[in-house]
Simulated scan of single mutants.
Amino acid sequence: MEKENNAWIDGLFSHSYAEARQKFLSAAARRGLAVESHELALAGADGETLATDVVLDGPADASRMLLVISGVHGVEGFCGSAVQTGMLLRAREGADALRDTAVLHVHAVNPFGFSHLRRVTQENVDLNRNFVDFDKPLPVNPGYAEIHELLLPAVWPPQAEVEAALAAYRDRHGARGLQRAMSLGQHGFADGMFFGGHRPTWSNVIFRRILQRHAPKVRQLASIDVHTGLGAYGVGERIFASFDEDPAVLARAERWWGELTSVTSGTSTSIPLTGPIQTAITEECRGAQHLGICLEYGTWPSERVTGALRAEHWLHRHGDTDPARAAAIRQALKDAFYPDAADWKLAVWQQASQACLRALEGLQEDASQAMLA
């Protein structure tokens, strides 16, 4: 095993989607693990192939599984990809003792956004707002309708009166109310922010297909969905991401991962979302008891992150005849969600690897208790 020093950790991270994908594929090859690739029929930012890649580390018929997900929000994939690559490369001490247990890595669920430095998919859809029942009336977010034109005005940077109107909305509804109006999810503005779509996206369909193939025999399922952009710099907030409201389920999750936050109780930096990806886990893995967390790493102050998001969506909506400014806007979005700094990367790896190991230990402990019962 290579020593997990700062240089090794830094090497897990990449400067582009293409580099991140190659490191992930190389790590799988080094372990002799097969890769299942779902290619998207669009080119990457540098003309590269775009794909959601899947690696199963462990027995195909395992009844216990840890699911690790990266790139739900494309540009956030730099973080999750590094975690997955590191988990494939790290020491395998005691691997034989992981009875009936596998790790399923789903790399770059949204490869288009990852490559093109967008948070959304090729359909301009926020994937974490797309897992809704499209056969029923779609969720309505009246708050977003009030601020859509303020968030993405015709002129960028926004004029003073635009920012004043947005501040007035925040004064009326509070900071949390503005966050809810903006990021809850909306289905009324296809060119807007946090758009949930009018139908399942390609990424939605592929993710469900992956679960249908790899998880039908799973009875105990743990999931870690890696995100960035909310919270304090380098801190990985562990957000409870199981839909089962039984207090015993939360208690079990906290035995594994320690204290967790919750979007429903208001203890999380995030808010409840319409159509998160965990919906698919619940619907496609009905035979499994699911314990999941979103591991949300803080980057920079929320004003910087929100400003970068607005600018990039403005660019998508209105375009820009200045190539240099367009490139700067895209780079600013990448920087907002991926601090390319050694201390941040170290914090990411230490917390993520611990979360993964705790999940595997929890699955094994539960199995041992079941045998003794």
Rank of each mutant, 00 (worst) to 15 (best):
V106R: 05
A43F: 11
N124R: 08
D322P: 12
H105W: 10
W156A: 10
H227Q: 01
L295K: 02
E312A: 05
A7C: 11
G113S: 14
A62I: 02
R317M: 14
L211S: 06
G77C: 12
G292I: 07
E36N: 01
L40E: 04
R317P: 09
A342F: 07
R219H: 13
W300C: 15
G74K: 10
Y338M: 02
E2Y: 14
N128T: 00
H313P: 10
L151A: 11
T264K: 11
L104C: 02
A60L: 04
A253Y: 13
T321N: 15
E161S: 06
A232D: 09
L295P: 03
T121I: 04
C356M: 13
F112V: 05
A20Q: 05
N5Q: 12
H187C: 10
H105G: 13
G266S: 04
Q278N: 09
A248P: 10
P200C: 03
H148E: 07
S262P: 11
T269A: 10
R238M: 14
P158E: 10
L211I: 07
L42P: 04
Q354E: 11
G258Q: 03
A326C: 01
D191S: 08
G11V: 02
V140R: 02
H316A: 13
R119S: 06
T269S: 07
P153Q: 08
V218T: 11
S302R: 11
G266R: 05
R304G: 04
R219K: 13
Q351T: 06
E93R: 08
V103E: 08
P247D: 07
T299W: 03
R317W: 07
A108S: 03
R252Y: 06
E76T: 05
K136D: 14
A355D: 04
T121V: 04
S115V: 00
L33V: 00
G298L: 01
P216F: 11
F207L: 09
E361F: 15
L50K: 10
D53A: 02
F131I: 00
N141P: 00
V218S: 13
I271A: 04
P157L: 04
D340W: 02
Q220M: 12
D191C: 03
